[in-house]
Design a protein around this nucleic acid. Structure first.
Length: 174
DNA sequence: TAGGCCATCTGGTCCT
DNA sequence: AGGACCAGATGGCCTA
């Protein structure tokens, strides 16, 4: 994969002032958005059911709400990215210099969980102590869950190998 | 230069 | 009603 040493992020959050002022005449961000929207509106409407709405065409109040909504969306995405970062940090063998992409992180995490699950099952012969409590079935919930999601023919012993192979391939790709 | 990845904007829909 | 969530669109940055 590639090194993601992006410099200063391209876009900047719209300053607080923008929430209270008319859009700056030369406001780059706003300008870009307008251009994009214009382009989109000029290209045939993809969803005829959607009435074509003019960018910032509403009232000042509508524009203000849009900007606030953008800010919330930004914050939401930042939280999502923080969660991705936290996930990267608990997956072993993450390359130190090259950040895993989101898709890599999810794929690796999935296989890591699978490999851990198969390891636990192997070590406990399919019987988790907690599941042996009165009222619990003879097969652990973990085992049932594993069978349900991994399938009977998905060799549990192969999960670790699969995970290791994947880590290796990610490393090679970097 | 093409392709991958990402941040951001945006409008629709769902939920509280 | 307003916020959260989602998916599509767009453009910037980076590497091969």
């Amino acid at each position: 994969m590639k090194a993601k040493s992006k410099g200063a992020k391209r876009r900047h959050a719209i300053p607080e002032d923008a929430l209270r002022q008319e859009p700056a005449p030369g406001g780059e961000e706003l300008g870009k958005c307008l251009r994009r929207k214009e382009k989109r509106n000029n290209e045939g409407q993809k969803s005829p059911s959607r009435p074509a709405k003019l960018p910032w065409g509403g009232s000042k109040d509508r524009r203000l709400r849009r900007l606030e909504s953008n800010e919330r969306e930004r914050q939401r995405m930042h939280k999502l990215n923080a969660a991705f970062q936290a996930l990267r940090e608990v997956i072993p063998h993450v390359r130190a210099e090259n950040k895993l992409s989101k898709i890599e992180t999810l794929t690796l995490a999935k296989n890591y969980i699978k490999s851990l699950t198969s390891t636990i099952l192997r070590m406990s012969n399919g019987h988790i102590p907690a599941a042996e409590a009165p009222g619990a079935g003879s097969r652990s919930k973990l085992y049932e869950h594993y069978q349900q999601h991994c399938g009977e023919d998905d060799d549990p012993a192969g999960q670790l190998q699969k995970y290791s192979t994947q880590i290796h391939s990610f490393r090679q790709g970097s």
